[in-house]
Amino acid sequence: MSRLAVRLSVTAQSYGLEHVAETKGPYIFVSNHPSELDEALVRDALRHLSPRLVTVAVEPRRGIRGLVDQALSLRSASRLAVLLASGTSVLLFAEKTRTDDGSLAQLDLGAALLGIRTGAPLVPVSIVGSYRALPPWRTTVEPGRPRVQVLFGRPIRAGVGDEPSAVTDELAAAISTGLAEESRGWYGARRSQADGAHAPETAAGGEAGWRKIWKATATPTSPSRRRVWQ
């Protein structure tokens, strides 16, 4: 979807851009991927900071786009490293598989490897609310301009000697904290993280799929005006 279409159909808010602005680019953005809006959302949020951006998803794209990706051989790490060296930032949807309930799946190690190899800062990105705005069973965005948030975390600099799995865990934790902000608030999400309350959902595998979808599509209690006239 084009950026303009995104801006017209949802109310997008982005936070944490100052962390990105203070680090020198190009960047590797590691994001969750709940819906088809995500690429456009992130591009829109980064329009001032990082005009040149290339998107890659771990799960291959279908159809024509997949062919295009293959043609450009975007999915090879070396190709990406070259792109980074020339100043283009990369947006990586690093989940191994895309869940159909909007929650975070396990991350592929490729992002961490790329970060270690090129030394570019890894910026965790949490996208909140886009699952609800454009769930898999819809073709158009839900009417009423639903709120979508793009949260950028602190960039992680991976040194040569770092363990990829450790870096990947760090990234996952950062993305989950961002996702938890919706329900617990900014401070609450960090408190929970500190107390170790949330590990990646897939590990627990507790809740039934429908319940997760139910929670993910719940109408958020958006701040509204107090109703005086009943």
Binding site: E18, W186, Y187, R190, R191, Q193, A194, D195
Partner: peptide
């Protein structure tokens, strides 16, 4: 910005009464 950093540390330390 400053308070965000402070609060991150506070969250990590387990402070609730802020």
């Amino acid at each position: 910005r400053v308070i965000e950093h402070v609060l991150e540390r506070a969250a990590a330390a387990g402070v609730d009464d802020v």
